[in-house]
Design a protein around this nucleic acid. Structure first.
Lengths: 266, 266
DNA sequence: CTAGGATGTTCACGCCGTAAACATCTATCG
DNA sequence: CGATAGATGTTTACGGCGTGAACATCCTAG
């Protein structure tokens, strides 16, 4: 879980923001959304219950209405937090893949030096292979990171993607999903860009690849979490993720332009 | 919506209809689940409210407890119904694609006959192309059918895939998703089999292809319905579906075995 | 120092899921 | 054929939820 929200309001009496006089909480909004996020982590979106969050914070139920318009508003805050957590997890997974690749390259270079110090050409050809391996590893990392996050914090993941629209006529408020503002999305864009640069994506397929890739990984996660293949042994699950990202990578690499592979239907 | 549930139980007094016959209401269980399904269609899983369903059927709230263990049980029935509706839509979409292909083939044959009655070899080569075009069209059809169903009945779709597990400790009852019993799944298997037969899927990628394909289409649907690209103009949406199924088809066709395309991560 | 806004509390209402006790209907058995 | 037991539906009641209204308290600007 992200650290903020637990700020706990410093006890240094001389501070400017010290109203710990019990009546005024000091940071109720954050405290409430943190409590609500914890509820979401424990039980998913349905467990995000305003009164319980207030109870945990030690405040009366209606106090929440000074900081959130209503229950949906509180839930929206939790969704933001959950999405941010996901973005953190993805970024960390990709960073780790990069670090691992660095290590591997360093080891290779070391071995090279010891074995054939003056070998010609060996470097150039490897350069490209290395960039490709790196890019592939990043795709795999983001896929596994996505799935791992969802399975390690299912309630939070479900909350991040739960439907907000209050079906009874409310005008479908804009979800907290500003494609482009969203960090998770940018991590993905970055990974796809590196794949394109490494020649692993056919340029014609680059546009729209974010959606295709996201769809594949998100759908797989959904199926693994709540769908027909939930409760799969870890080994099988990892293989499914590998299969799916491999098929995805192969599809993105294929040079046949989009639209020629299907679309023959009326 | 599927027709059953509205069966309205015949009034012929002489009927045997022993198990779920007409006692008081006649067919309360079906009436309730139909009303609940209508609620789901109108407002998604959260709108499935036991008391409202009872109200619509004209019965007291607690009457439902003679036919459903609790609210979750009622919701499960609705999920089954929603899944069945989805299966119907997919089967219909694939059937339509096949019918269209038949028409096209017939037209081609007609044209051929008029143009070059005795052309040698033309048939053999076309045979394979036709099978491939057919299989591709089927994949496209199932993808569009899936998305179209979700967008035309969003509440029902969300209900079909909503999480049931009552987070507060209940032992994760088995969802109504008996992969293999589920008709929607078998429609997909059928489509993938025809693609394999037409040589559109590398045999090494056939295992697990159901999940990969389902994941792609389901994920895309989720993103289009509640995700970052909801409210997309129809034309763009159709293009996204075409892109995604094209990339999927290309990925399944690629001969590089699964696992070589990624999986370089730790 | 004081007035007013921000923050939190108490009380109240209607809706929900659901348990318990009671009423009614229907099929079956003596 | 009439009694009886079980299936079906109703009434009543309880606690929990989201939320509005009126009231209390605190903090800060004038």
């Amino acid at each position: 879980m992200r650290q903020h929200g637990q700020v706990q309001h410093e006890r240094t009496t001389s501070e400017r923001t010290p109203p710990r006089g019990a009546y005024h909480h000091g940071d109720l909004r954050n405290a409430l959304s943190a409590a609500a996020a914890e509820l979401a982590r424990e039980g998913g979106p349905e467990a995000v219950v305003l009164r319980e969050a207030a109870r945990r914070v030690g405040v009366s139920p209606t106090a929440a209405y000074r900081h959130f318009a209503n229950h949906a508003d509180l839930l929206k805050a939790v969704k933001h937090e959950a999405l941010a957590d996901l973005a953190d997890a993805l970024a960390a997974a990709v960073a780790k893949a990069d670090a691992d690749a660095d290590d591997a390259d360093a080891a290779d270079a070391d071995a090279d030096q010891h074995r054939s110090p003056g070998a010609a050409d060996g470097g150039g050809g490897q350069q490209r292979t290395r960039a490709q391996a790196r890019a592939r590893a990043r795709l795999s990392a983001i896929g596994h990171g996505y799935v791992d996050f969802a399975l390690s914090a299912p309630g939070l993941f479900r909350t991040a993607f739960c439907h907000s629209g209050t079906a009874d006529g409310t005008p479908t408020e804009p979800e907290p999903f500003d494609l482009g503002t969203e960090r998770a999305y940018r991590v993905l864009v970055d990974v796809l860009d590196s794949m394109l640069a490494a020649g692993l994506i056919a340029p014609a397929r680059r546009p729209g690849a974010e959606i295709t890739a996201w769809a594949m990984v998100h759908g797989l996660t959904t199926l693994l979490l709540d769908g027909p293949i939930r409760d799969l042994p870890e080994a099988d699950r990892r293989r499914m993720v590998d299969d799916a990202t491999a098929t995805l990578a192969a599809g993105l690499a294929a040079s046949t332009g989009p639209g020629s592979g299907s679309g023959a239907g009326a």
